[in-house]
Computed example of a mutant assay.
Amino acid sequence: MHANLHINAISRSGGRTAPGASAYRSGTVVKDRSAVACAAYRSGETLKDDRYEKTHDFTRKENVLHAEIIAPDGAPAWLTDREKLWNAVEAGEKRKDAQLAKEIILTLPRNLDTDEQKQVVRDFVRENLTSRGLVADFAIHSPEASDGDRNPHAHIMFTLRPVEGDGFGKKLTGRVNGLDDRKVLGDMRNSYETILNQVSVQKNSEIHFDLRNLKEKGIDREPQPKIGPKVTHLEKRGYQTEWGKEVRQVNARNQAKQAQLAHNSYSQATYLAGKAIDAVRDDIAHKYYEVMYGPEAAYGDNPEKEQDFYGYER
């Protein structure tokens, strides 16, 4: 069963802001790149943007199954208000290129119903984010996948600063023991894998999840680029898109690589089979000459030193 985890940064320098990114994960097309606009988009809500003095309405957004904010135990109640939360994050970061939040995307198994998917995300958030004092805003989306089925996934946007008093403390970013440390991503992936396998055990399912990447699994295959529902829809209608072209090129390269590996395996197997047949023929020849003419005929003057049919030592 397929499942995966990705993590991205949300920063002003990239044209994406915190409330805006939160909204995007629950909603529709973002025409305005402000923080609150993205936040409204992801949650499928109407949010007022204090920084840009606008109101963004994405209540018509489809495929948003659920949106929820989880704060650490003892956090002030206002942190679970999406508009107040992300406007406060924006107000607290002064630099024009400030990193405002991070986003984790969890691919959710199709064999789980919506309530089970919610619980999986909540368990992951509590184990990896609120346990660090961070506030997490997640939304579950279920757009159409390229195979015609659903593509359930969760967007989890979380603060970089832990809750401290009635506000936020020092950022937990950094490449050494911080949120930018590669080990943190590895720990989160292992955590998600464990949570999913525990759910499988509870459901008496034989499905086992392995979130290691292709390289870690020893699979020599190029990862296929992800395409969204819009590209999928266009491709199904016969339109050629750049994303679709890239996916087809990757698939072609992977198929060529697999064909080459299969050819190499066949050639190696044929070579080994030929050697085995030659060895059997050699043994038969030795036995024949030994029986008909004695050991000297088969092995020369020294029967203790085994030779091949042509007189070379083996």
Results as ranks from 00 to 15, higher is better:
Gln307Ala: 11
Val29Ile: 06
Lys84Glu: 10
Val36Asn: 06
Gly74Phe: 05
Ala67Ile: 11
Leu47Cys: 09
Glu193Thr: 01
Gly238Cys: 08
Trp243Arg: 15
His2Ile: 12
Lys118Phe: 03
Lys31Met: 01
Arg212Pro: 06
Tyr266Met: 14
Val120Phe: 05
Val125Ile: 15
Val135His: 07
His153Ser: 08
Asp32Tyr: 12
Arg33Cys: 14
Asp57Gly: 03
Thr130Phe: 11
Glu242Ser: 12
Phe124Tyr: 12
Ile7Asn: 11
Lys226Thr: 03
Leu106Gly: 00
Pro303Trp: 12
His2Asp: 05
Ile156Trp: 03
Gly238Asp: 10
His286Asn: 10
Asp115Val: 04
Ile156Gly: 05
Ala297Asp: 05
Pro223Trp: 07
Ala154Lys: 00
Met1Asp: 08
Pro109Ala: 10
Arg237Trp: 04
Glu206Trp: 03
Leu100Tyr: 07
Glu93Val: 02
Arg175Leu: 12
Leu160Asp: 10
Lys217Asp: 15
Val176Gln: 03
Ala88Val: 03
Pro109Cys: 14
Glu62Tyr: 02
Ser191Tyr: 11
Asp113Val: 04
Glu83Asn: 05
Gln117Ser: 15
Thr130Trp: 13
Ser43Ile: 00
Lys84Thr: 14
Glu62Asp: 04
His6Thr: 02
Gln240Glu: 15
Ile207Arg: 04
Gly244His: 08
Glu45Leu: 07
Gly27Glu: 06
Ile70Asn: 00
Ala37His: 04
Leu211Glu: 07
Leu5His: 12
Leu106Asp: 00
Lys305Cys: 11
Gln268Trp: 03
Gly311Asp: 12
Ile105Ser: 15
Ile219Cys: 06
Thr130Ala: 10
Val247Asn: 11
His155Tyr: 09
Arg281His: 08
Ala35Glu: 13
His263Ile: 06
Gln240Val: 09
Arg248Ile: 02
Ala297Asn: 11
Leu112Cys: 15
Asn251Phe: 07
Asp187Gly: 04
Lys61Leu: 04
Arg95Gly: 05
Glu206Tyr: 01
Gln240Gly: 01
Lys230Gln: 11
Gln258Ala: 10
Ser34Cys: 08
Gln117Thr: 05
Pro162Val: 07
Phe58Ile: 03
Val29His: 12
Ala154Ser: 14
Pro72Phe: 00
Leu65His: 03
Pro295Asn: 05
Glu235Lys: 11
Asp283Thr: 00
Glu242Arg: 13
Gly74Ala: 04
Lys54Gln: 12
Tyr239Thr: 15
Ser191Arg: 14
Gln117Tyr: 10
Gly218Trp: 06
Asn254Leu: 01
Met157His: 06
Phe309Ser: 12
Glu164Ala: 11
Asn213Met: 09
Glu222Trp: 10
Lys203Arg: 10
Met1Cys: 07
Pro19Arg: 01
Ser267His: 14
Asn190Met: 13
Ala18Ser: 01
Gly44Cys: 08
Gly20Ala: 08
Glu296Asp: 04
Asn8Val: 10
Thr241Asn: 01
Lys215His: 14
Ser200Val: 10
Glu193Asp: 00
Gln117Cys: 06
Glu193Asn: 00
His141Met: 02
Thr270Ile: 04
Ala40Ile: 04
His286Phe: 05
Glu144Gln: 02
